[in-house]
């Protein structure tokens, strides 16, 4: 990690200032992360408590007695793994398709000025501006006629439309930041435009692609109503409706299991991101991008 980040660079001349700066950065980081992480801590703590303690001692900060009972319950339910597997399949496919489509469309919107360019971009965004509760009724009928209910493709294609409009705009923005001379040089060397895009431009768009991939993964990951409506068999359910089904019952809510299940499904996502985020910086080092 040799690249020095901008703000730090400003201060490198003075050692004392740098120490002070470091302290400030960590203090700021602690405050900012505390806001995000305190509710997460409560989720985690709840998942290690007995159901009795959750209600009997609402202020109990450290789970005592500490129990893995909720985790055992969650993992011994065969449906849990089904929901998790379904969510991974659907959202990973969504993510890959969205990145591919957004990359192509975003690049073209960035490079070509054609009539209706702006209107088309606004139209793409406008498809997000209608209440899904009303859309769903018609979509259900459409998908039933096409025999797509209870299938992965129905969910994947729906979720692609969640993330795609924004992703196209994002990729256009990132592509705008890549100077045209770079791919023109490649095209003079004999590359087709597509080859130039894939070989020269894409490596510079990697940070944006990672961001878009994660965004489109999570856009579907968080959905409840669409997957609830478009699937009805237990073997096709995704995590959000599956969790509601299992832990938010008619008679009572299984708080500790709900939280334990969430912890279990969140860990892999965060782990993958932690690995992937290295590529967020790759754009910086892969070429002399001008501003």
């Amino acid at each position: 990690m040799s690249a020095l980040s901008p703000t730090l660079t400003l201060r490198r001349s003075r050692r004392r200032a740098r120490v002070w700066h470091g302290v400030m950065v960590y203090a700021l980081l602690a405050i900012l992360l505390a806001f995000s992480l305190l509710p997460i801590y409560w989720l985690l703590a709840t998942s290690f408590k007995t159901r009795f303690d959750i209600f009997a001692n609402p202020g109990q900060f450290f789970p005592f007695p500490f129990t893995l009972h909720a985790y055992q319950q969650v993992l011994s339910d065969p449906h849990f793994l089904t929901y998790f597997k379904n969510s991974l399949i659907v959202n990973l496919a969504t993510s890959l398709i969205t990145v591919a489509l957004a990359l192509l469309a975003g690049y073209s919107f960035s490079r070509f000025r054609f009539r209706g360019n702006q209107a088309l971009l606004l139209f793409i965004l406008a498809t997000q501006m209608f209440p899904s509760a009303v859309l769903l009724l018609s979509l259900y009928i459409l998908f039933r006629q096409l025999h797509l209910l209870n299938t992965y493709p129905a969910l994947i294609i729906s979720y692609v439309t969640f993330g795609l409009p924004f992703s196209i705009w994002m990729m256009k923005g990132f592509a705008d930041g890549v100077p045209e001379e770079i791919e023109q040089a490649a095209m003079i060397d004999g590359c087709s435009r597509m080859q130039a895009l894939l070989r020269v431009v894409v490596p510079m768009l990697v940070p944006g692609m990672i961001a878009v991939a994660l965004f489109s993964f999570l856009a579907g990951w968080n959905d409840l109503m669409w997957s609830l409506t478009l699937t009805s068999s237990t073997s096709m359910r995704l995590i959000p409706p599956g969790f509601i089904l299992t832990y938010v019952g008619q008679f009572q809510t299984y708080w500790n299991q709900l939280m334990a299940g969430s912890v279990l499904v969140s860990i892999p996502t965060v782990a993958v991101f932690t690995l992937l985020q290295r590529y967020l910086v790759q754009g910086l080092t892969s070429g002399g991008v001008k501003g």
């Binding site: 959000p240 969430s262 782990a271 290295r278």
Partner: peptide, 17 residues
Amino acid sequence: SFFRGLALLPWVIPQVV
């Protein structure tokens, strides 16, 4: 990278949860 992963947590917990 660890802190970046932590910061992402509120978004990764399913919204309904």
